[in-house]
Design a protein around this nucleic acid. Sequence first.
DNA 1: CCAAAAGTGTTTATGATACACCCATGT
DNA 2: ACATGGGTGTATCATAAACACTTTTGG
Lengths: 225, 225
Amino acid sequence: MKYAYDHPRPAVTVDLVVFTVRDGELRVLLVRRAMEPFQGRWALPGGFVRERESLEEAARRELEEETGLRDVYLEQLFTFGDPGRDPRTRVVTVSYYALVRSDERPLRASTDAAEAAWHAAARPPKLAFDHERILAYAVERLRAKLGYTTVGFQLLPRKFTLPELQRLYETILGAALDKRNFRRKLRSLKLLKEEPEMRSDGAHRPARLYSFRLRRILTLDGQIV
Amino acid sequence: MKYAYDHPRPAVTVDLVVFTVRDGELRVLLVRRAMEPFQGRWALPGGFVRERESLEEAARRELEEETGLRDVYLEQLFTFGDPGRDPRTRVVTVSYYALVRSDERPLRASTDAAEAAWHAAARPPKLAFDHERILAYAVERLRAKLGYTTVGFQLLPRKFTLPELQRLYETILGAALDKRNFRRKLRSLKLLKEEPEMRSDGAHRPARLYSFRLRRILTLDGQIV
DNA sequence: CCAAAAGTGTTTATGATACACCCATGT
DNA sequence: ACATGGGTGTATCATAAACACTTTTGG
């Protein structure tokens, strides 16, 4: 092995797949690129990793710059580094996905993204670089994770109703779930705390509000603890 | 977002956690470092990513250089990039884990690793850099993966007996499994092909040999197909 | 004939699935 | 009073877990 400074050095970036659920649809945050390459195309938010910050710090910093959000669920996804994925130079990107609650009003004016907007994750516009692949992989991983972890709760407000939670799962999984079985399953997991309030929402019976019980729930790679 | 060449560029390496199972023990391939930093310490094999190769190509190239092995099971694990993990300069390492069959005689003379040897994965010597963390994470992931994929088969020779397979699982999981349940489970999965031969191995009844049925079994991230 | 590991079935418990009606509210 | 979505229980099936004896070989 030679010394580190003998070797070509790729640029290293983090890219973020920021998910939320709104109007019964899984959405992803995209920014319109202000410059070449792919000027005018939508892309995943992201940016270069700075000298003295860790990869996760870089991801959190970028996320806050683009959305104003802190303390969101964030998990490393995959590292993409094929030569040629950026036409300018070799760029290795460490991708992360983030889950933000739909009541947290993201999308404040961001520092350098000209325009940022939520798009349906299932049918994104044409994206810059290999970002469609990254997005597709993130969706796949989120679905898988939903099955054996509680990441889903990260997408809802602190208090939520069971029908909301069920719709969230159905949205992400793209499949209908049986109401009774879904509720029994949740009851058996003992993860929910019943709140005293109800939520009235139209011409029908109000729904009970619940909150999620656990404090710290996920390790580095998403296992429940 | 600024242009790529405006930014500090970390060195990018791949590090390999190469597992095998020998004598009922999970083992990992380590190389002794020939130079500073951490000269003389054991470390995971790895090296710098070249200009025109993908990350996975780099990992396979390094693996072949260190062990002479090709066509092994290889999966991206995690990317570690804390500043200070290499005292020389910022190094971002994309870690992979590989599974090699115990009958494939790895460890031919390697190009630049002074010394390479198999060590018990459960109690490795003091390692260079943050390699103990990478190793621990790889072991954890391998265990988890064993539960819902067939990666385990990658560690055995083409023909193997059911007791061998069971011992493999018990070794990696660190727990005893019920013989009858284990065999029934495998039968129900229909993954094994009965071979005509038996293997005699001491003063007891010989065991039937089996081989694994599927050809390509795993996608990018380890799902069975 | 003995030691040693291979091989084999049944019962019980647990979790997953399928399925239909009553309840509380707003208009 | 009716339309709308919230809420509840039981029976069936599939999968997991627990458990003990017989078989084949080498020495």
